[in-house]
Design a protein around this nucleic acid. Structure first.
Length: 463
RNA sequence: GAGGCUGUAGCUCAGUUGGUUAGAGCAUCAGAUUGUGGUUCUGAGGGUCGAGGGUUCGAAACCCUUCAGCCUCCCCA
């Protein structure tokens, strides 16, 4: 028999871990609701055609495809066709509805777009929804990178106002403030990146430029310049990009400098205006107590190719933590156009809660009192005492006290050890004497103190 | 898709130039202790040394193949 294990890139979550994760989920949910977002859930699997072509070439490779099980292959003809398709799929990278017509969801945005198009007649626009569900990617796992991970998304569709962008920035700042994670919120615009490619004289290489530029933090300007060269950017183009990268100062100073450099690009000016207007809205909307920084950063790229306007990314700003982005998002003007409903603009953000968990773990910023489950355990002495224990248990639960009974008539020692290991605070001992008097003995496990009192008094103490 | 590291008890790991019956800590179970846990002491169970093949008188160790996991690049959350 082989050792039990979980598939590569997946994890079990222990009770302690689940409670910590739920703390994050609950915090985010509360904030999403506070900002007027409505909950939504979509299936774990989507039709394969819904997902392909949405995440770029690399993304298509990373979609988990679900193989058909052949249950429908009742006719010989169909079986033959399946065998034929199988032989193709085994020899090369080939996809066919006969073999695989469904796939696991890759993110929450595309399923959301699909949902909006399907239910466009029932929804009141602008429609704002939040969604917290697992997604799957057939990636090679490494640190902070899993094959099954959870995303928490908030999106608005049906409004082009930059108030939405500002609100989403507030959600980021408010959430990480509450979670006590210091963050920097990077902001950029796809239009500014497009303008950058324009002024280099090679607008068709925008993706190459942004991919290289995105590595600025990691490999420095020298490395980026080298990669730009390899990707076919001219000397002059690289020089111009360097001018843009070298701009320093606060956000307004940066935007002013960009406006100067990009003054002949209508797209660039549009992008700069978007960002500066977003920041202006944000300043009126933000809570002065938030510590997180908002930083205009033209090197921020974001891979997903459906973004068209403002793009954002969140990184932890603590020196103690080395972690990639823990959230990101942006505006996509034509997302629903992919499913046949053009002209509906959307903007959204995503929280990578697995990474946020890892960051919080390293920073040790969990609240001290995360619920630990039952606070009281009733020991089991069997016979009439067992019945008496059940009656006491009912009274505790009626009073809202989280309590459990040891279900087996086990040795005293064993029951005590169980309670200790579970970290339960109070132990109730319903024995002969207690039952006859209609009382219980209540022992506080942290102080060792024990006294015989009524159930009502007991509820008062432990409640 | 490219590269590096690691697979020994439920878990974390020792295991010398290849040498007799593969060890420790933690965990589990039993006892010291029949209504009082954490500490301590005693004892017990638990292994196809990832798998397959090869070299050798002899392999956990050396060689080949393969599988799995971790990490880096690519890309991403």
């Amino acid at each position: 028999m082989s050792k039990p294990s979980v598939p590569q890139g997946t994890r079990d979550f222990s009770p302690v871990e689940v409670r910590k994760r739920q703390y994050i989920f609950n915090t985010l949910r509360t904030i999403f609701e506070l900002y007027g977002f409505q909950p939504l859930e979509t299936p774990a699997m989507e039709n394969l055609v819904t997902l392909t072509g949405k995440y770029g070439e690399e993304g298509d490779r990373l979609i988990f495809k679900i193989l058909n099980n052949g249950l429908n292959a009742q006719t010989d003809e169909y079986k033959a066709k399946m065998n034929d398709e199988w032989s193709k799929i085994l020899t090369k990278n080939y996809s066919t509805p006969v073999i695989t017509e469904r796939a696991l969801r890759y993110d929450l945005t595309i399923p959301f777009a699909r949902y909006v198009v399907m239910h466009q007649n029932d929804l009141a626009f602008p429609f704002r929804r939040y969604q917290m569900q697992p997604v799957w990617r057939a990636d090679r796992p490494q640190k902070g990178r899993y094959r099954e991970f959870w995303q928490c998304d908030a999106d608005v569709v049906g409004s082009t106002s930059l108030i939405n962008e500002a609100e989403l920035l507030c959600i980021y700042q408010g959430a990480f403030h509450q979670l006590q994670v210091p963050v920097t919120n990077k902001v950029n615009s796809r239009k500014m990146l497009a303008a950058l490619a324009e002024i280099c004289g090679m607008p068709e290489l925008m993706m190459d430029i942004t991919i290289a530029l995105d590595k600025l933090d990691k490999i420095g300007w020298i490395g980026v310049a080298k990669e730009l060269q390899e990707r076919g950017i001219s000397e002059e183009g690289i020089w111009k990009i360097e001018q843009v990268i070298n701009v320093t100062g606060d956000n307004n100073a940066k935007l002013a400098a960009y406006a100067d450099i990009m003054q002949h690009s209508a797209t660039g000016i549009e992008g700069i205006n978007e960002v500066s207007k977003t920041l202006a809205f944000y300043n009126n909307l933000a809570d002065g107590n938030w510590q997180g920084k908002i930083e205009v950063d033209i090197s921020l790229a974001r891979g997903l190719n459906y973004y068209t306007g403002v793009i954002v990314e969140v990184v932890c700003s603590s020196d103690k933590v080395k972690m990639g982005s823990i959230g990101g998002g942006g505006r996509y003007d034509d997302l629903t156009g992919l499913f046949g409903k053009p002209g509906l603009s959307g903007v959204g953000v995503s929280f990578g809660i697995d990474r946020i968990y890892d960051v919080m773990e390293e920073l040790a910023v969990w609240p001290e009192q995360l619920a630990t489950g039952a606070n009281v355990i009733i020991l089991n002495f069997g016979g009439e005492n067992e019945i008496y224990g059940l009656q006491v248990l009912r009274q505790l639960r009626d009073a809202g006290v989280a309590a459990e009974i040891y279900p087996d008539v086990a040795k005293f020692d064993k029951q005590m050890k169980y309670a200790n290991k579970r970290g339960i605070t109070y132990v109730i001992l319903p024995g002969d004497e207690e039952r006859e008097k209609g009382l219980v003995s209540l022992k506080n496990f942290s102080t060792g103190e024990q006294k015989m009192i009524s159930v009502a008094e007991c509820i008062e103490v432990v409640g």
